[in-house]
Design a binder for these strands. Structure first.
Lengths: 224, 224
DNA sequence: ACAAGAGTGTGATCTGTATCACATTTTAAA
DNA sequence: TTTAAAATGTGATACAGATCACACTCTTGT
């Protein structure tokens, strides 16, 4: 089992692992492929593995008091659900594939052993957790304070800049999911998107989106 | 310098430190007292220390796009701002004392050294970060989806159960701050609190609050 | 190729909450 | 104590966004 040793998508933490450790990781690591819509792990199920997304797009979501809430969109390569695996016995949220996704299931004990024996690995995980939390704080405050068009604009910029690195892309979410991510009703998402289209800020046709006036979109994202 | 060696409020992580390490911690650790309203650290300032709150109540807050947002209320003993210190060069949020607060400033390099040399300490920090993040997810979703009375009720229960462990307490926040915490306008906080008073769920007089009907308050917290 | 179901666009209403306006109370300072 | 300043309560109004209603358009399977 040398899959991890020669893996070209190792995490920044795993780059600190030695050959022996990578071999050990390879032995306890299972690679699985998920299709769009497949659930990778489910809220309230026992959390028994650390998930590493080698490739693909995943939504992290949890059942809120009123409706489903998408907490974030994660893009491989990235760890998924370290907090929910190390912080509780049971998953506090679900992860669902938005595209075809390559995932490694890492045995939690092996992961703990690395933290124990390799302090560079541990430190990298800590920094990772910290950065995630900061990102989440910012996202949360934006969600809470901006109004709908601002949240939609911000999310479009997020997809363009962080996920697809292009101003033309296919939205990997339904209007309903886009609402769950931005805290809007399905109808309101439609309305805001077609308003943006009418104003010439973006061009939409179904799920395909093209950003025409990025400055204006950025302005809307900031101011309302 | 043996203040840490004989400290009776050590963190769960620091309990894994040996005598040598505690002595080293004592040498690099500065104890400071803050009064109500004092800023412990400030958003956008250089983050150079890990903060450990030995005793007291602190608000964590950041400037949002529209107004100030209180992210959480922290009660000593607890670490503060590990994410903002290890995750970025600059503080992503501020911390302000709500009561008289005893704080230890821990040199970041010493903290890193402990992560490096003591894997139990590191693991404890990791679990801590994970649990914090889970708590924050839940808080965020509740804030986003519940409507105003539900958020106010939830926050009152939080103060009663988590902070004061009593159904009679003095609110350590102004109505304005309570709004910044629950995402309401100052006026709306007043209205909701006096409604709850009129319905006999709580009894208010200024900042002092008594919960009279906890079941009903819980119901309101859950259902709107 | 077709039907059935899911997903989407858009107008008309309804409602929670912000905002404005002002009276009143509390706190802090002189 | 007096006075200014800050914090609070409460009604009236305005508006963003949810909800309802329905037509339309894609999927998906048979």
């Amino acid at each position: 089992m040398e899959i991890c040793k020669f893996c070209n998508k190792r995490s920044s933490a795993a780059r600190h692992l030695g050959n022996d450790e990578l071999e050990k990781l390879g032995h306890s690591c299972v690679e699985v492929s998920f299709e769009k819509g497949d659930i990778i792990f489910k809220q309230n199920a026992l959390s028994s593995n650390i998930i590493y997304v080698r490739e693909g797009l995943v939504k992290i979501h949890m059942a809120g008091p009123e409706r489903e809430q998408i907490l974030k969109i994660a893009k491989g390569p990235t760890y998924l659900g370290i907090p929910t695996t190390l912080g509780d016995k049971v998953n506090n949220y679900s992860a669902t594939a938005l595209t075809t996704t390559e995932v490694c299931f890492i045995d939690i004990q092996v992961f703990k052993d690395f933290i124990d024996s390799n302090s560079d690995f541990a430190y990298e995980i800590i920094v990772n957790l910290c950065k995630n939390e900061l990102g989440h704080f910012h996202r949360c405050v934006n969600q809470l304070q901006k109004q709908s068009p601002g949240r939609v604009a911000e999310t479009l910029l997020f997809f363009a800049d962080e996920i697809f690195e292009s101003d033309i892309f296919d939205l990997p979410l339904s209007r309903h999911e886009f609402g769950d991510l931005t805290g809007n009703s399905r109808e309101n998402v439609s309305r805001i998107l077609s308003d943006l289209d009418k104003e010439g800020v973006i061009k939409i046709s179904g799920k395909s989106i093209q950003i025409l006036d990025k400055d204006k979109l950025f302005f809307i994202s900031k101011n309302g």
